[in-house]
Amino acid sequence: MKAASLLRWESMLAAVLIAAFITFSSLSPYFLSVDTLSDATFNFTERAIVALPLALLIIAGEIDISVAAIIALASVAMGLASAQGVGTAGLVGIGLGTGLLAGCINGALVTIGRVPSIVATIGTMTLFRGAAYAVLGDRVLKDYPDSFATFGQGYLVGPISIELALFVLFAILFGVFLHRTRWGRSIFAVGANPVASRFSGIAVNHYRFALFALTGLFSGLAAVLLTSRLGSTRPSIAQGWELEIISMVILGGVSVWGGKGSILGVVLAALVFGLTTFGLGLMNIPGIVLSIFTGLLLILVVAVPALVNRR
């Protein structure tokens, strides 16, 4: 029943992806080359890596608006540590650790503090981004060791960047976890009906806490990749990304009411998002115009099923 409609949604995304592909390759002679397409992946991999755990969180009926602020906080932590002479391995540890800690704070607020997740993460978003500004002010940190640049700028084999490889790896892991394990089933159950889930013996709050922690950890990972790619940290780093990441997840067919969604959909949405941004960029159309399309698409995604169901 629901599986069939989801499948339709994903095939529609795939069709959009192919259409975008054909359109851009016919409009720009530079589009259809391995190097260009390899460059294009940098446009979305960092965001998409955060979209994976966020999809799980939204399926579980929660939301995290603080992801971009966590990226900024983790990036500042790494920048400060690097200025103290910490090596590359240490920096990665600090980035991931900061993300995990921030995610645990969100999780604790929602489970122990019983604050609705949208309010809690609006608060921590302000807090984390505020901490980044408070510590850094108008300064820029850019004393990163040379080897640190590998994560965001390096390639695994040929045109496949380390970022892309990581994204593919985690997409598969998340897909298997969500759709093939007991824990994944429980996540759907928690999102569809938390009270019934609690009665049937699922430790709902443990799932919530773990998913917030996971989202924080992956925001930390995105911070490592982004900081490594840019080679510098400003407190405004990744500003506005939370909305793009959430858009990606919803565009992927994940229901904001919880209980519905698939990793395949999120991956396809990430590809559509990245390809379209890059393609329009090639055609000298500014990103802000693209945001009109993203906004319309986002509303259409939820409006079309609502219109159909009304009949």
């Binding site: 939301i63 858009s247 904001v256 009109i292 993203t294 906004g295 698409l297 509303i299 939820v302």
Partner: peptide
């Protein structure tokens, strides 16, 4: 939240 996120971009 989805509607106003969308109209915000638009």
């Amino acid at each position: 939240i989805v509607v106003t996120l969308g109209t915000m971009s638009i």
